[in-house]
Design a protein around this nucleic acid. Sequence first.
RNA 1: GGCGCGUUCGUCUAGCGGCCUAGGACGCUGCCCUCUCAAGGCAGAGAUCACGGGUUCAAAUCCCGUACGCGCCA
Length: 484
Amino acid sequence: MTTKVRTRFAPSPTGFLHIGGARTTLYSWLFARRHGGDFILRIEDTDEVRSTDESVTAILDSIKWLGLNWDEGPIDGKSDKGPHAPYFQMKRVEIYRKYLDQLLAEGKAYRCYCTKEELDEMRRLAQLEKRPPRYDGRCRALSEAGRKEREAQGKKWSIRFKMPVEGATVVDDKIRGMVSFENKLLQDLVIWKTTDGPTYNFCCVIDDHLMGMTHVVRGDEHLSNTPSQIQIYYALGWQPPVFAHLSMILGPDGSKLSKRHGATSVLEYRDQGYLPHTMRNYLALLGWSNAQSQQLFTDEDLIAQFDLEGCQKSPATFDTVKLQWMNGEYIRQTPLPELIELAKPFLEKAGLIGLPGPSFEKTIALEKEKFKLLSEIPTLIEFFYKPVEVTEKAAKVLSGPGARDALAGLAEALKDFAPFEDKALEARIRQFVEEKGLKAGQVFHPLRAAVSGRTEGPTLFLMLEIMGKETVLARLKDAAAKAA
RNA sequence: GGCGCGUUCGUCUAGCGGCCUAGGACGCUGCCCUCUCAAGGCAGAGAUCACGGGUUCAAAUCCCGUACGCGCCA
């Protein structure tokens, strides 16, 4: 019998969920789903100073928006659900204390009385002598008498974990293979702070074990901590999970992706009008690919094909241009009613809802293949609902030679024209072009500029039909008058 | 400083000793379609596989160095 796969994402609620975190979440989730396993969410809020409830909410909202569901973990910022609850580390301190006592009792950890000043001095000396700046283990060898003495002086202590001094620790990493670290280079890690609190590496090990994690998928930056964590597993008599360390995501300039490269928070991408499916697909491809270099995936495809071994070891640059292409691709694939639903918040924000004019079914359908972002929808269709705003280019067209006559003539020709419909309009207007002995462009271009205020836009005659006779005539006359 | 990780077109990547005069995708250029802009179709430019040594009949692929970048120790 094989054990059920269990993976987790364990964010610190000290800010928004950023792109890197989103990808880690996605990969953990995909791996669990691929193997019919469970995906767990755990909140690592032991940093009391920087952790906030708003961050928890923002992170949960981000993951929900991405369309990734979790089987156990927080329900909201306060409560949680699952067989291994609580899933907030601050509520688990008593659990950590129990294992701390066990390590202490077994002589696998010890009290360290060194002050911050002493440690700083140690580090300074080490650097001076060009030795690695690590703890020298002076309290590890402390005699019972030495301990008594320090405690009599009222000295505070932290708890350090005794690392082995010989041999090597091998990390079996799904992505990087076997990575070996010499034990003598591992420090005696502080697992409990003087200020009475467990530290990250300690909590992480205990939770991952107690919550039954079979695979730990996380960022590259944790690879160096992994041998120390593995030693804690051993000391507690536990089997470490399988690890998979993902490479970083970089900004266009090759440095770690950050605020100055633009949006980093997942929710900003939502607000810019990216679809969750785009984010899933794009992020999946940022560091993973199949043998065919396939680009577009359904969720079923992704789940069926994703594997950790196929992940890239080298960092990847986040490319907004490709992201936009993919979003356009998925917007075009979205059925119209659904697209209108998705566009609502953006139409609302642009003040287009409730204005007289054609239905969004018609105008959005007309421009559907042009949207790369949902946020572009209002801009491309607003002239159907709002007074014409003439762009610089359009103004040039409208003041060009013959434009005024063409527009005035058109207004006259279309005044009593029926039916006011695509094909019929095209036939009539082409006939008008011929009557006047003009070239098509001499009429089409000013016509477009007059009714939309732009030189680029939807296919001309269908646009006129949708806009309606009244508006078209009014705008023609208006433009003709202004061109004079 | 030590340790660890990484390095294939501008970008994401395929590649796991001969199929590679290195494939796909985004972007870019040109052409076609056409009432504009898109979308679509076609074509093209673009990578001496970081560099230097080996191993081998044969290396982007294996080994060893070097450089550069990144991470952890803080």
